[in-house]
């Protein structure tokens, strides 16, 4: 692991993002607009907006980072730049951390903007600290990134990579408790929800909405961070120096 290579990689990824202002604009603007949309969809049910507004805010970075990482990593694999880097004195951790820093910065700006709109303009309120919401949003971003990296190994085209989004993200969204309380679900689905990382991301965000940052919320945060680490490790094993 080398700080020089890690930072150069982060700078390179940022530079690439800068060359694609449309993607950056959509990454930053779309979650804000969705939060506004949600506010007015739930215009007649302000309590419901207060319940789902914050969890959704924390989940956006998960979805965008999943997509962005899956596509960028796939590009690294298909254009041969990954093979070139793997034949150079670059550690896999340098590459992963470089991506983590660059996309983490984007996720932070994204979460900050969305939170600014939601808390500042839409009158969304949390009982706990907004900073905890930001922390959970960042953990979700890293989780999304790690899963995106992992699935990029199983896609050969960008079409396939995009299809992993509904396959991996939507079931977690349906099961995490955002739409229907998990207690109302069938037992088998509850058991399935218990092993999916987004469930804990949602729980943590929901807890901060109604209460403070307690030990249960800390546990949720740790589970999300652990799942991200696990996915990152799995993702790293798909960065092979030798391929068939």
């Amino acid at each position: 692991m080398s700080a020089r290579i890690t930072l150069a990689t982060a700078a390179r990824v940022m530079l690439q993002l800068r060359r694609d202002p449309r993607t950056v604009a959509m990454l930053l603007v779309v979650p804000c607009l969705l939060e506004v949309l949600l506010r007015y969809v739930l215009d007649g049910q302000p309590l419901e907006f207060q319940r789902v507004g914050t969890p959704l805010l924390g989940i956006f970075p998960f979805i965008s980072m999943f997509l962005v990482t899956a596509i960028t990593m796939l590009r690294e694999r298909t254009t041969g730049t990954l093979e070139r880097l793997m034949a150079m004195p670059l550690g896999k951790l340098d590459l992963l951390a470089g991506y983590g820093i660059a996309f983490g910065a984007v996720a932070a700006v994204q979460a900050g903007l969305t939170a600014g709109v939601a808390f500042g303009l839409l009158d969304l309120q949390v009982a706990g600290s907004e900073w905890v919401v930001a922390g959970l949003a960042m953990a979700n971003a890293v989780l999304g990134m790690a899963l995106g990296l992992f699935v990029s190994a199983f896609a050969t085209t960008e079409f396939q990579a995009v299809q992993f989004m509904p396959a991996i993200v939507i079931p977690q969204l349906l099961l995490c408790g955002l739409l229907v309380p998990r207690d109302d679900m069938a037992g088998a689905l509850q058991a399935l929800a218990d092993v999916l990382p987004l469930t804990y991301a949602y729980d943590g965000l929901a807890r901060v909405t109604t209460g403070g940052f307690d030990s249960a919320a800390l546990r949720d945060l740790l589970v999300v961070a652990g799942a991200a680490l696990l996915a990152l490790t799995l993702g790293a094993t798909t960065l092979r120096r030798r391929t068939p």
Binding site: D20, T79, G80, T81
Partner: peptide, 11 residues
């Protein structure tokens, strides 16, 4: 150097 140019197209 691989047959297909392996450099970043957006840089």
């Amino acid at each position: 150097v691989t047959q297909a140019p392996s450099v970043y197209g957006d840089l």
